[in-house]
Design a protein around this nucleic acid. Sequence first.
DNA 1: CGACCTTTTGATAGTAGTCAAATGAAGTGG
DNA 2: CCACTTCATTTGACTACTATCAAAAGGTCG
Lengths: 268, 268
Amino acid sequence: MISDAAIASPLSCRASLPAQAGRCASAAREPRRDAQREAAHAQRVAERLGLVLSSVEVQRRVVRAGDIVYQAGQRFTHLFVASTGAYKIVNLTRDGREQIVSVKFRGDWLGLDGIADAAHECDAVALDTGEVWAVPYAALVQACAVRPGLMTAFHEAMGRELARDRSSLMSVCTLPADARVADFLHDWAAALACRGLRTDQITLRMTRAEVGNYLGLTLETVSRALSRLAREGLIAFADGARREIVIPDAEALGEFVHDALAPATALQ
Amino acid sequence: MISDAAIASPLSCRASLPAQAGRCASAAREPRRDAQREAAHAQRVAERLGLVLSSVEVQRRVVRAGDIVYQAGQRFTHLFVASTGAYKIVNLTRDGREQIVSVKFRGDWLGLDGIADAAHECDAVALDTGEVWAVPYAALVQACAVRPGLMTAFHEAMGRELARDRSSLMSVCTLPADARVADFLHDWAAALACRGLRTDQITLRMTRAEVGNYLGLTLETVSRALSRLAREGLIAFADGARREIVIPDAEALGEFVHDALAPATALQ
DNA sequence: CGACCTTTTGATAGTAGTCAAATGAAGTGG
DNA sequence: CCACTTCATTTGACTACTATCAAAAGGTCG
């Protein structure tokens, strides 16, 4: 039905939507259901974590900011699950340059990229104090064979990660700098909200340079974007170092991101 | 060891590598091993396909350019494997904008993103005549429980896709327009090479607008980039419509991409 | 307090987007 | 078989955004 139209339609570059970035974020337009959804989601996260705990013997490990969960090049033997804390996934290259490709929170799996070639391709670094569970992959595979529920949950997690990567690709491809930063904050808040954590105030555990690296911007541009967002009242700073960011109205922030694409819509 | 250095190191935006984009592409600097590696890879792809065929009953389906393999919103019941042809994965949004998030070839799985929420999030559209196999997900899960080899192969495929998405994110984040287009072509050729297909000449089955959409550029910029690459002899056009692109020296193309980042390297 | 790091802000330059027009290829109907 | 339409592509001129370079201010920790 859409068959031919789909391939023939002209695709303008900025023609895309980021607002629905996370599955969680998509609820932002319906404030009523927000709380419900988030609670439900948080519960599902908890259930999945419980499922893992009950199926496989995991090794708990407390990490502090800067600690490496796993390192690129390491032989892949374990997967990790973030129980608490935040983590950055850094892809680094032979010539020493590095790129942050993802940020992880409670309930997310770490190390999935290592499965393909039996070696980790990225570093995973804790941004904060937290706890990770090390899950031996072999044991997980065995447990999955016995418990189809665990297998589908695991597949779900991988699929979710794919979807998340995609939406971040979309933001980077389509949003101007200010909106990209706004989207980043909005996503971060949404990720916390989905997990039942406080969302009105978030502590960036990354420097401007890191945020910029993640978003494909320079640190100066990130700084300017944050200043502009603050000037417009979409965010506020809670501390002197400007790492604590208050989001008075997450919906407004989402709207701002959405509006950045609106002009393109009109043309179509 | 790298622990603190990693988080403290200044991350400049353009500081990243795209040359290693695909796992396949990374072989480009070692021409000797290229053929071997690619042959080995092609065989592995064939083996994986055989594994699927022998484990699950699949439904073969021939598609032509523009045909939709699956559509966003559809209930997720089947996964698909590309046997031949090329496919674009299009993420479309409530307001009708669309973004090409991935391009798939022989051996790739389609629809993995649907597992997470039991519904497809993207459209998958054939760019060319080809054959896809529809694999009932339920049957796959059952087969995986019996055959751990299939499960790990499947996990591998998902992991590989994650890695690929990441590398494309990296290109988009870090490369200037010309290099981004060059990288796109280089990746495409590498993807074909990995599968044992001819790589010296590739037929773009996408319009400039589609390429631009995928790379986060406007169609004009893509056109200009192609013209410049042709002017420098890195590529050539084989037909009037300029869809057939000849790559006389894949290594040189890879080098061009790599050089786009060189200045940043020098500083570090 | 002083050294160091992060962040902010300004001035300037370069890249890519936007608008617009022309060319070329493909397909339609006379 | 050839005008005519339509769509993809190319190219130019101009604009806007973001990177770059540079300097200063604010925080943190010894």
